[in-house]
């Protein structure tokens, strides 16, 4: 596939970052000659263990730190320029927000930084708070009273306040419960459907696998691999056939048929669901069939919750 510059959301060329000590001597090479391109409208995963250079890459793209060598551009503009920040949304790895503000005040503040008209802001803020799942009561509370999950939600809301074209998410599911994690992943997929570009930086591989089309894996500041998730995960010498409603006799017949064809090492099992799917199913059933008055920790009684009204 041939790409033009117009289809590029992010272009990184030979980007390096070396942290120096007080005397100007090299201390840590956090990123080493990274080159990659992220296309518009795709969800791209930046993977790697702690200290691999993921956050450094994001900080360089946002202009929080300056590169030692190389360059990066975002949507055709040099990375870090305030002009391009108009079209970017950023969720840091922890919600670094003003803890003395309420959820609503936080969004209004960040909205003002984008010069969003007051009227539009009054319309957009409640919508966003609904989208990230902060109920009416929680959005009036100060952020210092928020649980980690709620802080991630308001952090995500501030990242989306300007309806950005490119969203950089640094460990977006950290601190979220399974429901929150699923909602976050659903949100990322819906952003993709809206044509947004998402750069997802995480070391939770399952999350990345669920939402990303392409990924790169960094290790010790260097890029180790880059490609489509499907291509990278595919085991080419094993074929899997899935069907529904086979009896044991039919399974035996199938085995014999395959043996006649000369296929050995045949394994026949029932597929399993993921733990996340199981958890989600149980919670949904409990929510529908459970008692009218919720018991346990809820946002309303002062304990942390997932932010959904009546959630257990």
């Amino acid at each position: 596939m041939t790409l033009t510059v117009d289809t590029e959301a992010v272009r990184i060329e030979h980007l390096s970052k070396v942290y120096k000590d007080f005397w100007g001597r090299d201390k840590v090479r956090a990123l080493d000659d990274l080159s990659l391109t992220i296309h518009r409208g795709e969800v791209f995963g930046l993977l790697g263990p702690n200290g691999s250079g993921k956050s450094t890459t994001i900080k360089l793209l946002l202009g929080l730190i300056f590169p030692t060598a190389g360059s990066a551009s975002i949507l055709g503009h040099p990375a870090g320029s305030t002009v391009i920040n108009e079209r970017i949304g950023f969720l840091p790895e922890e919600s670094y927000l003003y803890r003395f503000l309420t959820g609503e005040e936080t969004l209004h503040f960040y909205g003002k930084l984008f010069k969003i008209p007051r009227k539009e802001l009054n319309r957009r803020v409640p919508l966003l708070l609904d989208t990230v799942g902060l109920n009416t009561k929680d959005r009036k509370r100060k952020l210092r009273e928020y649980s980690k999950g709620m802080a991630r939600r308001i952090g995500l809301a501030q990242a989306l306040i300007n309806n950005p074209d490119l969203i950089l998410l640094d460990e977006p599911t950290t601190g979220l419960d399974p429901i929150g994690t699923r909602e976050m992943k659903d949100l990322i997929l819906s952003l993709k459907q809206q044509g947004k570009t998402v750069l997802l930086c995480s070391h939770l591989l399952a999350d990345v696998q669920d939402v990303c089309e392409r990924i790169t894996i960094l290790f010790r500041g260097k890029m180790q691999t880059l490609g489509q998730v499907r291509d990278l995960l595919e085991v080419k010498d094993i074929t899997q056939i899935q069907t529904k409603g086979m009896t044991p006799a039919q399974v035996d017949e199938m085995r014999q048929f395959l043996a006649k064809m000369g296929v050995s090492d045949t394994v026949v099992t029932h597929p399993t669901t993921t733990l996340e799917d199981l958890f989600m199913r149980i919670v949904r059933e409990r929510t529908v069939n459970g008692p009218a008055t919720p018991v346990g920790a809820t946002p309303g009684n002062g304990h942390a919750g997932n932010g959904k009204p009546g959630a257990p």
Binding site: L62, G63, L64, T82, N85, F90, P92, Y96
Partner: peptide
């Protein structure tokens, strides 16, 4: 130090 500045300088704020 507490990195609140991250969310300010990554906005179109000079």
């Amino acid at each position: 130090e507490n990195r609140v500045i991250f969310t300010i300088v990554t906005k179109p704020t000079t």
